[in-house]
Design a protein around this nucleic acid. Sequence first.
DNA 1: GTCTATATTCAGATAGAC
DNA 2: GTCTATCTGAATATAGAC
Lengths: 203, 203
Amino acid sequence: MDQHVTQLKPILKKEKTRLLILDKAAQMFSQHGYQSTSLKDIAASAGMKAGSLYYHFASKEALMTEVLDKSMLLISDTVGEEIEKLDDGFTFEEGLHAYIFGHLTAILKHSDYTTTTIRNDGQVPEAVNKAVKVKREHYEEQWRKLMRQGKEEGAIRADLDETLLRLMILGASNWSSVWFKSGGHSIAELAKKFTQVFLKGCR
Amino acid sequence: MDQHVTQLKPILKKEKTRLLILDKAAQMFSQHGYQSTSLKDIAASAGMKAGSLYYHFASKEALMTEVLDKSMLLISDTVGEEIEKLDDGFTFEEGLHAYIFGHLTAILKHSDYTTTTIRNDGQVPEAVNKAVKVKREHYEEQWRKLMRQGKEEGAIRADLDETLLRLMILGASNWSSVWFKSGGHSIAELAKKFTQVFLKGCR
DNA sequence: GTCTATATTCAGATAGAC
DNA sequence: GTCTATCTGAATATAGAC
C-alpha cells in the first residue's frame, strides 16, 4: 500500500496512535502554547508516558512542526474545496465568499490545529518556523491572486490598497478563533456577514 | 510626595530601574511569549543578573501581571484621549475613527506592551489572567457603547449584529500588530482606511 | 541595590527491560 | 510499542556577601 493512501485512511495501529498523539498535541499547543505544554502533558492526554512519545516522534520540535504542517494543509484544502465548487469564471464576490467561508470553516472546525498556527506564530523555535513558512506563503499568494481579481473587476476601489484589505479580512477572520463559541452564529452565517461587510466596504 | 505622581513621573533611581525592567520584560514577552522568556534573559537585557530582579518584583507572574496591566492602561488611555478631542455630540463616524485611531496607535506605538496582551491571551497562569480580566472588560464595554450608538443612528444596518461588527473591527486592528512595519503606511493612514472600509461595510 | 552561590523543581531526551 | 529509570540542562526562586 502506498504511503499517500496510508496517510489519508490510517488503518494500522501504529498510525492510529501517531494521529491520536498529534490530535492531543494540537489541542494542548492551541490552549496553552508551545512552551507551556510539556511532553508529559501530551502523553498523559493520549494515555501514555512521556518516554513513549519518542517511538512515534523524534522530538518536541518535530511534533510541533507536524501539527503546524497539518494546520496549513487543512486551511489550504478547505479553501481549495470551496473554490472548486464555483464555476470557472467566478466573480470576485463569489470568490471572496468562498475564500472567507473556507478559511472560517478550517479555522473553526479544526481549531485545535489552526489556533496552534495562529497563536504560536513567532513563538516557536526557528527551525520549526522555517519549516512551515513555505506553505504559509503559498496560501497567502492565493489570497493575493483573489485581491488582484477584485482590483481588475473594479470591485475594490482604486484608492484602497489591496494588501491592506487582505490583511483586514484575514485579521478579522483569524480573530474569530478567539471569540467563536459553537451555539451562536453558524459558520455559514459568519461567512455571509463577513463577505457582506468587506464587499461593501471595499467598493 | 504622593504615590500617584511618583508613578507618572519617576525620578527616583529605584523607580527608574523598575520601569527599565518592565520595558525589557514587555519587549521579550511580546517577542517570545511568556513561558519562552526566562528571567535571566530579561535581567540580561536590563544589564543585570537574574537574582537582582527579585528586589523589584516578587515573581515572574507579578512582572507579567504588571506588563499586562500597563498594556490595558495604555490602550484605554490612548483611546480616551482621542475621544476627548471630539465635540460632545460626536457622530458614530467620528467616534469610530477616534476609537480605531486610538486603538491602532496604542497597539502599534506601544507594541511591546500591547502585543504581549494580544499574543499571550490565555497562555499565562490563571492568576495572571484573572488579574487583568476586569480592565479588559471595561475597555470592551466602551466599544459596545459605540456600537449601540451606531445602531441608534442607523449607521449600522438593522440586520448586522453589532457584536459581530465589533469583533471584526477589533480582530482586523489587533492583527495589525503581526504585520505592521514602520516605514509603510502611517498609523493615521491605516486608521482612515480601516474606518472607511468598516463604515461603508456596515451601512 | 546588585552580586554570587545554591536549593529545588522540572523539562526534553535516551537506554534498556518487558 | 510502552514502560521505568535516569542523564543533563535550565528555570524560578532564595540567602547572604558586598
